[in-house]
């Protein structure tokens, strides 16, 4: 910890308070406008079980808006935390679920499952298997050609290649899909959207995210050692092979769990860890809570814009790219030091 830096607990509490405020604000936005008082009141009645029939505010808030907002939080924190994990484990600030091919792989797995009309849990399972396969192939490719080239470049290029192959697979299935039933589902899903998220989706998505987060939280200090590189970490007594596999599996599990419900939401896994590192430094015990908070807040905010900016719903993936790309350039210019 840096001397004079505030203790982690205090800024985490502050961040949670900010996130709660943002959550309530976001809940007021939508087709049926709610006041801040309506939101808090409906939440309160929901918590103590006094919401009566015909209580419109409570119905809208608890039945429609709450699952959507919860999904935004879950997607944001999961993508951001897995991005931070990949970056530290691969010692590369440029990697993220999208760049490593994990998102595309998980996407292909999910599309296969949609194509076969499988339930949500199967979509998640397929997303996980394909995502893990994608990252494993990318890493194996990078290792094979290591030594001859810049390892960072090789990893990124391998990710691009695998991403393209997975993308081609998705195109094939899109081409073959039933145009009345499956195609709209696939297309909407590929653009990335939280509009169709149901309570069932949420119930399927949060356990794998928690399952991935728990080891990350427990190993939070040890993750730093991976940033030193293979030799140095092993010389400090770390079983790097096993730790790397465990961390990559956790990150991939989180990514695929949320990709299965939201579609491919890009940029979050890349830019949020940068923002967090910029604010609290690279030490993972501090980086993890910061990425979780910022990631959740970011997707919540962008999804709220997607719902409220225009009369129609803008797919979050599209809005996110418009916001994420310039944000990334700005970070690139500001925090050049954290790039080396």
């Amino acid at each position: 910890m840096r001397p004079g830096a505030p203790a982690t607990a205090s800024w985490v509490l502050l961040g949670l308070a900010g996130l709660a405020a943002l959550f309530c604000l976001a809940a007021t936005v939508g087709q049926y406008p709610l006041s801040l008082g309506d939101v808090v009141g409906a939440l309160w009645r929901g918590v103590n079980g006094t919401a009566a029939d015909g209580d419109t505010a409570a119905t809208v808030m608890l039945g429609i808006r709450l699952p959507r907002l919860a999904a935004a939080l879950l997607v944001g924190l999961a993508l951001a935390a897995s991005g931070a994990t990949y970056q530290t484990v691969f010692r590369n600030p440029l990697v993220a679920p999208d760049i490593l091919g994990v998102s595309a792989g998980a996407g292909l797995g999910a599309v296969v499952a949609i194509f076969l009309s499988l339930p949500v849990v199967a979509i998640q399972g397929m997303a996980f298997v394909f995502g893990l396969a994608a990252v494993a192939v990318v890493y194996a490719m990078a290792r094979l050609v290591r030594g001859a080239h810049d390892p960072v470049l090789v990893l990124v290029l391998a990710g691009v290649v695998i991403g393209a192959v997975m993308g081609a697979g998705i195109s094939v299935l899109t081409y073959l899909a039933d145009p009345y039933d499956q195609l709209p589902a696939i297309t909407f899903w590929l653009m990335g959207s939280l509009a169709g998220v149901t309570v069932t989706d949420l119930q399927a998505a949060w356990p794998p995210v928690v399952l991935g987060l728990v080891p990350l939280f427990l190993l939070r200090w040890r993750v730093n050692l991976m940033a030193l590189g293979e030799d140095e970490a092993r010389a400090l007594g770390v079983d790097t092979g096993r730790l790397r596999v465990l961390l990559v599996v956790c990150a991939t599990l989180m990514t695929s769990a949320v990709v299965a419900i939201s579609g491919t939401v890009g940029w979050v896994g890349l830019i949020i860890p940068h923002m967090a590192r910029f604010l609290v430094g690279p030490e993972f015990s501090r980086l993890l809570p910061a990425t979780l908070l910022i990631g959740a807040a970011y997707v919540l905010a962008v999804d709220t814009l997607a719902r409220g900016l225009a009369g129609i719903e803008i797919p979050i993936g599209i809005l996110n790219a418009f916001i994420g790309a310039p944000l990334f350039l700005w970070i690139l210019a500001r925090a050049r030091r954290s790039w080396r």
Binding site: R2, T88, N92, L225, A227, L236, G237, V238, R277, G281
Partner: peptide, 17 residues
């Protein structure tokens, strides 16, 4: 090094074993 760890954090990593 890849990430800008504070110097003291780097030294503390020696405590890993």
């Amino acid at each position: 090094g890849t990430f800008p760890f504070p110097v003291l954090d780097v030294v503390v990593m020696g405590r890993a074993p």
